[in-house]
């Protein structure tokens, strides 16, 4: 009987551990997302235990002025102003707080080179509410991002 209980425990533990590694609720944030203006696509990935989002696609990748790829020309760090905007890590340092919320992160607005505090709330599996704010969440603005379907590797 003791062996039976032990086996059951081992089985359940193994099952739960497997399930957890596959279905960590925090990892639901991973994927490619599009802001409401449809002008960019952002891939959210995990580095360590935190989540970061990089611009992977721009609707208008070239600067109409120069005819060259858009640069991060408003970056407060002057040495990075000639770096391409595509690939810029605009979401940084998000940790999963629970209740479908990722907090303590920042969002960068390439239009003005400003970085805002940010909260990400997952409304459903394919919808994020991203609120950038200054100081307190009241002084902020929410945008809705939608998940893009990434095809499976052939």
């Amino acid at each position: 009987m003791r062996r039976f209980l032990l086996a059951t425990f081992v089985f359940l533990a193994s099952f739960l551990l497997t399930a957890k590694s596959l279905n960590d609720p925090a990892d639901r944030l991973l994927g490619v997302w599009e802001p409401s203006n449809g002008r960019a696509r952002v891939k959210i990935e995990k580095i360590g235990t935190k989540y970061y989002g990089k611009i992977v696609w721009l609707k208008e990748p070239t600067d109409p002025e120069t005819g060259k790829p858009k640069l991060d020309k408003n970056n407060p760090d002057e040495s990075l102003r000639n770096a391409p905007l595509k690939g810029y890590r605009m979401l940084k340092d998000f940790t999963y707080k629970g209740d479908d919320e990722w907090t303590e992160g920042t969002i960068y607005d390439p239009n003005n080179g400003s970085t805002y505090s940010c909260i990400i709330k997952m409304k459903d599996a394919n919808t994020l509410e991203i609120r950038g704010y200054i100081g307190i969440a009241t002084f902020g603005r929410t945008d809705v991002w939608k998940r893009l379907q990434v095809p499976a590797k052939p």
Partner: peptide, 23 residues
């Protein structure tokens, strides 16, 4: 490669740029 940026990340600290070379 046109430029490189080195950054540090850790659980309880914000990602920080530590070095760069451009171009």
């Amino acid at each position: 490669v046109s430029n490189v940026v080195l950054q540090l990340a850790a659980d309880k600290v914000d990602m920080t740029e530590i070095a760069l070379l451009n171009p």
